[in-house]
Structures are given as C-alpha cells and as structure tokens.
Design a protein around this nucleic acid. Structure first.
Lengths: 196, 196
DNA sequence: CACTGATGTGCACTGCGTGCAAGTCTCTGC
DNA sequence: GCAGAGACTTGCACGCAGTGCACATCAGTG
C-alpha cells in the first residue's frame, strides 16, 4: 500500500523551502536583490549553498518562487467561472485571487516592491508571464467563437490580460500602494479595449 | 573645432560590432545559444573575450543587440504619423518598419527562430519589451483624451500592442513563417479589442 | 616625432549554477 | 530492533558570464 508517500519528509521539505524563501525576501529587502548572494541566503537559513539549489533552481526562482504557484490559483479560479461568461470578466475574477492571499497590506506592498522594483528580476517576470499564459490560454480557448485561430486568439487575450495586470502592478508600486490595484487594472483594460 | 568626432575609429567600431553580431548568430544557429560560449564567439570573430564585452554588455545583448535598435526605428516611425490618427493604427504602421529591414525572408525566419525558439533568451525579450514600452508610451500619451491617467493608459496600450506583436511573432515562428506576420498581428489585436 | 586619448587584451576575481562522491538521516522489510 | 534501500545534505571542483585593473597598442593632433 502506498498511502501518503511519506509525511515527515515532504513536510520538512515544505518547511525548509518556505523558510528559505522567507529568509531570501528579508535579505533582499534589507540589502537589495543584486547585493545579496545566494551564499548569504543559505547561510542565514542555516543550510549549505548546494542544498539551497536543491530547493530552488536559481536565485530568481528563490525570489519569485514564493509567488510562482499563483498561476495555478488563478487558473483554478478561472476554471470555476461559468463557461458562458465573457473571458475578460472571468480573467478579472480569476486575478482577484491575488487579493485573497493571506498577508498584510504592508507586507504585500513590500514584497511586490522588491519584485517589481528590481531590474534584474524582469526575466523572472517574463518567465512567470509565459507560464501563466500557458495555463490560461487553453482555458480561454473553448470560450471563443470558432474562427480557425482560436488557439492563437486565446493566447493573445491571455497575454494582453496579464500585461494589463503587470502594468497595473507596476503603477501600483509606483504609487506606493495607495491606489486600488484593480481600479488600475480596469483602467488598463479599458484603455486598450476602448475604440478610439 | 570638433566636427566629426573621428571617422575611422567609429567606422571600424561599427564594423567590428556588426561582425561580432553576425558571427554570434551563425554560431547560435549552428550549435544553439546555450551551447555556445562567449569565448567561442570572440575567437571566431578574432578578438578577445574581454574585447567582446567592450562591444556588448552581455551574451544576451550579443544575440539581441542586432535588432535592439529596432525600437528606435519603430518610435521614429510612430512619431511621423499624423497626430490625430488612432494610436493603434499608428502603432501598426510603426511596427511595419520591421518588414522594411533589408534581409532575405529565409534569413529573417532563421534569426527570429533562434531568438524566439530559445528559452534562455526570454529575459532579453522582456528587456526589449520594456524598452520599446518606454519609447512608445510617451508618444502615445498626447494622443489620448485627458483623463488624469493618460500616462498609465498610454503605457498599457504600448504594452498591449507590443504583446500582440510578440504573440504574432511566436506564432509566426511556430508556423515556419508561412503566414503573413501582420495578418497574425491583426488577428491578435482584434481578438483582444473585440467586445464579446 | 612626441603626446594624448581611445581601444585591445591578459589576468584575476566574484557569483551563479551543476555534476559527483562522499556522508547522514528516514522509512521499510525482516 | 536492525540492516539495507533510498532520499537529503554537504563539500569540492568545475564551467561560464561578467567586471575591474593594468599594461600594451594604435589612431589622430600639434
């Protein structure tokens, strides 16, 4: 019988992973992303550098990994939406899961600021964007009218929506979190969809 | 008097830079981006590794640098468009400069395939996307109705248009260049702007 | 022809990421 | 309860990207 593949192992593994991500964020916040070495993060968390790389593929992954599973959350929420809802409405609703993640407002601002304020992390965002796109596009596709290019259109819509969210997040950080994120998102979506 | 800052110097510099980019592309095409070291490119071009880094900031820059000035071309073309034209129409027209760049069709496909087919270069595309956004947004802004958020809206539009172009390019590569790029672009734009 | 400044180049160094070969710990079957 | 299979940790040694520095070299100037 193979019930739980092993509780303890996986449990500690999750804990360590979480600890590492936590420690990393603190150091990044204190010293900046570029001026923090992986070595330091590992030391601060009490593991070896090599071990850290057993948990995270890269330094970027270390920074963004904590929020990497958000893509799945969004996709899951999207899938729950009624099948005849407008894709854009579903996307907006799906993105809202980001607000439901348990954390304080200041902490969220802090994290997002680190993640978006740093030049070196843009690659990571691109990576994330691509993954989200891959997750969402297949869900959007069946909602579009048959056109022979639905798959491509679905990708475009997913990409555009994510881009709007990205733009909204950047602006949100720029304004120190003093505006409602989804108000910005709506502004962005309206701006691109409004015919001149 | 400081007329021409020096013809010869800058001339050779441009030649060497071009040669390096060329050599790099050939090697990337032959061995793949990840399996080609900067060392090899430098050697093949007959310069030292260190010198290569005097011409290009990074390996990525080496791959994408050849097309990095495209952003300025696009922005310049956009600026030439009539001020009362719909931003989306201007953007489309501006993007068309990409077709005017002198090169054979196969060569273009080859280059774009290398550049878009490789995972490791996504960061570079993100970089490019960001730069184009910074160039285009300020030009779009004055064309929008006053709303108190024009700057943000302009960024969103620029980002979305670039995203559509990106999506179109990816699809274009996926189909082996056998479709018209701007037909794909139009499909993408229509897909995101069409109200349900 | 000597001078200045820009460029080419070697060298050493930091940091990321990986393969390998121990050693250590956890669960399993006996 | 114990021995062995298998996973996790860790150190070590690489390779590669990118940078700072010092020295050599070469184009252009008076």
């Amino acid at each position: 019988m193979v019930q739980k593949p092993t509780p303890i192992r996986e449990q500690t593994r999750a804990v360590v992973r979480s600890l590492l991500a936590q420690t990393a964020l603190e150091l990044f916040a204190a010293k900046g992303y570029d001026d923090t070495t992986v070595e330091e993060v590992a030391a601060a968390a009490g593991v070896s550098r090599r071990t850290l790389f057993n948990y995270f593929r890269s330094k970027e992954d270390l920074a963004l990994g904590g929020i990497s599973e958000q893509g799945e959350l969004i996709a899951a929420r999207f899938a729950e939406r009624p099948a005849d809802e407008d894709p854009w409405a579903s996307l907006r609703a799906a993105f809202r899961v980001l607000e439901e993640i348990e954390t304080t407002a200041e902490r969220r601002l802090e994290v997002v600021t680190i993640l978006f304020g740093n030049e070196s992390l843009r690659p990571g965002h691109a990576e994330k964007q691509a993954r989200w796109q891959d997750l969402l596009a297949p869900l959007i596709e069946p909602r579009l009218p048959d056109s022979g290019r639905r798959a491509f259109e679905a990708r475009a819509i997913a990409a555009a929506a994510i881009t709007c969210l990205q733009a909204a997040l950047e602006e949100w950080v720029r304004r120190g979190g003093r505006v409602d994120l989804f108000e910005l998102y709506d502004t962005a979506v309206q701006a691109i969809r409004r015919l001149a």
